[in-house]
Amino acid sequence: MAHFKDFTVRYGMVIDLDKCTGCGACMMSCQAENNVAPQEDASNKLRALNWLKVYRLSNGKEYPEHETVFLPRPCMQCGNPSCVTVCPVVATDKNEEGGIVSQVTPRCIGCRYCMASCPYHARYFNWFDPYWPGDLKEALSPDVSTRPRGVVEKCSFCHHRFMKAKDKAIANGEDPLMLPEEAYQTACTEACPNGAIVFGDLNNPEHRVYELKQSPYAFRLLERLGTDPQVYYLSKREWVRRLGDNYLEQEETGKPLQTLLNNSH
């Protein structure tokens, strides 16, 4: 499938759902790393803003046949991002080596077309004035600008870390497009105590994600929409993989998308 744009370096994640316990350490780290303003009440999930959200999934069966799995959902950094094509002010783009979909909040006019077009609900409107009461703003990271009310926010794969890693590589006389895996890791990847999140360059055979994405247990969310997500999931459980997309009854999971499309014709 053609990409929106081809990149030499394409960062992505492989998340092992059989290892995620849904503790939320990734969510907490993400907020602290990216200066996501805290919310007094986040129980109204239509107004809560999450760059990364952990969902609880169910196999849909009744007790005692029921099974549960937790699914962390960052931005999929799609190869063909539907959000980019609808943005009227080019506040979101996919135009930089690394293949990360940018979100330029000072350009955003808050029209929310991108939210409507994102099939993963990975984009959130900032409904409230960002507020760090008391001395809480002392803990703001100097790396990520705070955002005002009225703009759309989303996960950036901790892009500032990518910039720092590239700067460091250049300073050391190394190739910034051939970063070793450990040189650039997202906050959620680092935080996960179970090692459920693996992060790296999907095009680099030296990075673990290169092999992991080819696992027979790997799948992507709503893959056949053609968004080409750069986030892969792993699960040995068939029902979990089936939840990833709208499969027909006779279809098998774990097959590359092209095979599925060929078979369907």
Partner: peptide, 14 residues
């Protein structure tokens, strides 16, 4: 490894 509670240490400080 990090737990979600330990990840909140800096915010709890302030």
């Amino acid at each position: 490894g990090l737990t979600p509670l330990a990840a909140s240490e800096a915010q709890l400080l302030y």
